[in-house]
Simulated assay, not measured.
Amino acid sequence: MKPLYSWLLGSLLIGHACGVAALDSVIAPRADKSLALDIVATGPEQHVAVGERGHVLVSSDDGQSWQQVQVPTRATLTSIAASNGQIIVGGHDGVLLLSNDGGQVWKMVRNEPEQEKPVLDIVFLDQKTAFAVGAYGLYLKTTDGGYRWVEEEHPELEIPEFGFPHFYQLLPLQDGSLLLVGEAGFVARSEDNGDSWTTLPLPYEGSLFAVGQTESGALIVAGMRGNILRSDDLGQNWQTIDIDIRSGLNNIVVDGKEVVITGMDGIILRSIDDGRTFTVKQRPNRKAIAAATLEQEKLLVAAEDGLHVLELPATAQ
């Protein structure tokens, strides 16, 4: 996901009031041109994307064309994760959907509209274990492949005199630990598969929307007003990466030493030196990019204006 978050919060109460989570999605002829919020690769040339009004779309040609499939909700869908043909989607009203056939048929496995806590990120640890995190400290876990979910309480994740932040992204790291980032400069690490957490110091108090880890093990976090920070020691110390933009940054994609960050105002940042420096490109229409995947030197994006294949910024050799 991810945060076009002011839009998400603004539409949350509308979706709740209309009871859209309980209605089947409507097949729309231009669903691939409407607001898309997350995208995931599910196999060679295979992708699934999600967005507003319960839109779920599948592509079998690396994003050149998309087909919408019907799902049992019209809630805005914000996040998606895949593992060996199994796909979990989350969204507003605490909705979680499950597919076991690559995204063609979907089952509603969770719907909690009274909580008013949208799911904002989902991650698999293995075929059976997955987490879903979201607004106001939402923290869910499944150990049966996504059929049943348990909401866990972790008081160590509460910020003193603030409360539980919105959790924006959870990332499994190379050493087997987990990193969680969120609102108000929140960063926490777990070394026991999410059973307990330790918060990490960060010289920044704004929201962090995305996290990635490079081939060398470096951590990159990004968030509001173009802020990017990098750590070489698993989050104990951070260095600010200076870039001349002030747009919110929503998503990080890593391929070896290459790092691509996308965000509001159509911003695309690219690094080929392990996240130390970035070149900047901006979409001509300045439409926000919520999420992206890298495919053969192309960028598949879920954006404010739908699903697109974009060119990467050129880099100095």
Rank of each mutant, 00 (worst) to 15 (best):
V48K: 01
V48G: 02
V50H: 07
G51H: 13
G51C: 13
G51W: 15
E52D: 12
R53H: 15
G54R: 14
G54P: 01
G54D: 01
H55R: 12
H55F: 12
H55D: 08
V56I: 14
L57P: 09
L57R: 02
L57F: 10
V58H: 03
V58S: 03
V58G: 00
S59A: 11
S59V: 05
S59R: 05
S60H: 11
D61K: 02
D61T: 00
D61H: 02
D61M: 04
D62A: 13
G63H: 01
G63Q: 04
G63V: 01
S65E: 14
S65Q: 14
W66I: 03
W66S: 00
W66K: 00
Q67V: 07
Q67M: 10
Q67I: 04
Q67H: 11
Q68M: 08
Q68F: 09
Q68R: 06
Q68T: 03
Q68Y: 07
V69C: 09
V69D: 08
V69Y: 10
Q70M: 15
Q70A: 14
V71R: 03
P72D: 11
P72R: 09
P72M: 09
T73R: 15
T73A: 11
T73D: 11
R74V: 02
R74C: 03
A75P: 15
A75I: 13
T78Q: 11
T78P: 04
S79G: 13
S79P: 10
S79Y: 04
S79N: 13
S79I: 06
I80V: 15
I80N: 06
I80S: 04
I80T: 05
A81G: 07
S83T: 12
S83R: 12
N84T: 08
N84P: 02
G85T: 00
I87F: 01
I87A: 07
I88V: 15
I88R: 02
I88S: 03
V89N: 01
V89C: 01
V89W: 00
G90T: 12
G90F: 14
G90R: 08
G90Q: 11
G91L: 14
G91I: 13
G91D: 04
H92P: 09
H92Q: 15
H92R: 08
H92G: 07
D93F: 12
D93Q: 14
D93N: 15
